[in-house]
Amino acid sequence: MTNLKTLIRGEFGRLNKYGLFKANFVVLLLWVFLAWFLEGEALLQFIPFIFLMDSVMMTILLVGATLFYEKKEHTVNSLMVTPVTENEYLLSKVITNVLNSLLTVFIISLVVYLLKGVTYTYWQVVPAVALVTVVHTLIGIRLSYGAKDFTSLLVNYMVYVFIFFLPPVFGQFGLFDRSVARFFILLPPEASGLLIGSAFAAIEPWKIVFSYVYLALLSLLLFRFVVKPQFMAYVMRETGV
């Protein structure tokens, strides 16, 4: 537990030192700027979109950038010969990103309340954003370890967006038949969007329950069978003494 706290503190310190917080903050300002021009229903539709983008896209990019630096500087070598375990290392990445996403939720919620007086069911937003961030941190780690350099990470990222993110968006414009579109809930970004959106609009309860169970299960499976083995293989490859 002490190691986990130290690792998370270290992660935040490095996000700051490597300028990644700044990049995150600039994006946050952009969201606030856009929200400024929206009112009523349009704003209530835009806020869940911000949270979804932050907990899916920004999370993947942030974890990708931190792992890119770690790969470049071989720092994982040093960490793996300390009392830190693989689980603690990976959990620190997940928790740091969850805290980061929740910070965005807090700032956006505060700003839209102060500027527009808009409120929503925060107790629904927080667990939804947390779970969505967990899944996408793990997906981000998977995409990063599968990439040779930052360019190939961006390519992997774009492939993920095309395959998993865009079909549900196109579905909303009626580009897919209903019989196909109903399976989009199996795509992590769609299930994520449903969960976050449930704090802002009425969504069928089974879809909410399914999304929670599905994303939680997906997180466990990704951690156990994809991310951890891939991390171990990475350590084996990289730790040249």
Binding site: Y18, Y69, T75, N77, P83, V241
Partner: peptide, 16 residues
């Protein structure tokens, strides 16, 4: 790991 210290040949540190 509490007992050991490891010094790698290549320079390893958080550069920033």
């Amino acid at each position: 790991y509490q007992d050991i210290g490891v010094s790698f040949e290549m320079p390893i540190s958080f550069s920033k």
